[in-house]
C-alpha cells in the first residue's frame, strides 16, 4: 500500500454541500496523506455524514472539488451497515470481496470474521445477530479491504468496549500500512496524532 506518487490520498478544495438548498458546510479544505487520521466533529445536523458521502462519491457537491487518488475507491462505512440480514457475515464478506475485485479465498473470509470477533456467529444469517454483532460484521470489510482511504461514519456506534478497541486497532494497523482515515465521530477516537476538522453546524 506504499505511496508510489506524492499525491495525497484525499484532497478537497473549497468543498461545499447542501441538502434541499440549505448549505450545510462550505470551504472544507482537507488533505490526507499516508498515515493520517482526521476526526470530523460537529453537532448533529452539521453535515458530517454528508461530507463523508460526498467524498465517497455518493453525494454531489455544491461547490469545490474532491480528489481521491486514483485508481482506488475509498472504503465507506456508513450508518447503514451494508450487511444483508439474510446472509451470514461470511457470505456478506465474500460478496464484498467480489465487488472489490479481490480474492474470495475461504481463509481470507474466515480470518476476517474471526478478527472482528464473530467466530461461530459469523456463520448464521445476520438477521439473527444483535445490532452490535451486525456492526462487527460490517467491520469485517475493514479487515479485508485494500482501499488506502477509509471513510468511517460513527464507527463506534452500537459497539461494546472490546469492539471499540477493535476499531482503534484496525485504524492503527491501517495507518501503519500507509493508509489514511477520515472519521466522523462525537467522541475522540483516542489515537495519537489525530487531526481534527470542526464543522460549525
Amino acid at each position: 500500500m506504499a505511496d508510489p506518487s506524492n499525491e495525497p490520498l484525499l484532497c478537497t478544495r473549497g468543498l461545499a454541500c447542501g441538502v434541499n438548498g440549505r448549505t450545510l458546510f462550505e470551504g472544507v479544505e482537507l488533505t490526507l496523506s499516508a498515515g493520517d487520521l482526521v476526526e470530523v466533529r460537529g453537532p448533529n445536523g452539521s453535515g458530517k455524514t454528508t461530507l463523508l458521502r460526498c467524498i465517497a462519491g455518493l453525494f454531489t457537491e455544491e461547490a469545490g472539488s474532491v480528489r481521491v487518488r486514483p485508481p482506488e475507491r475509498p472504503l465507506y462505512l456508513g450508518h447503514k451497515p451494508g450487511v444483508n440480514p439474510m446472509l451470514s457475515a461470511l457470505e456478506n464478506i465474500r460478496w464484498y470481496l467480489a465487488l472489490e475485485g479481490l480474492s474470495r479465498d475461504a481463509d481470507v473470509c474466515r480470518d476476517a470474521v474471526d478478527t472482528v470477533g464473530l467466530g461461530r456467529a459469523g456463520r448464521v444469517p445476520c438477521a439473527t445477530l444483535s445490532a452490535g454483532q451486525r456492526r462487527r460484521a460490517a467491520l469485517a470489510r475493514l479487515v479485508v479491504t485494500e482501499a488506502p482511504l477509509w471513510l468511517l461514519d460513527e464507527p463506534f456506534s452500537a459497539l461494546d468496549d472490546a469492539g471499540q478497541d477493535l476499531v482503534r486497532s484496525l485504524i492503527d494497523r491501517h495507518r501503519d500500512a500507509g493508509g489514511a482515515v477520515l472519521c466522523a465521530t462525537h467522541e475522540p477516537v483516542g489515537l495519537p496524532d489525530a487531526g481534527r476538522l470542526e464543522l460549525p453546524g
Partner: peptide, 10 residues
Amino acid sequence: DGTLEQLLLH
C-alpha cells in the same frame, strides 16, 4: 441495509 451503497461504490 446499505448494501446498495456498497454496490454503487465498488
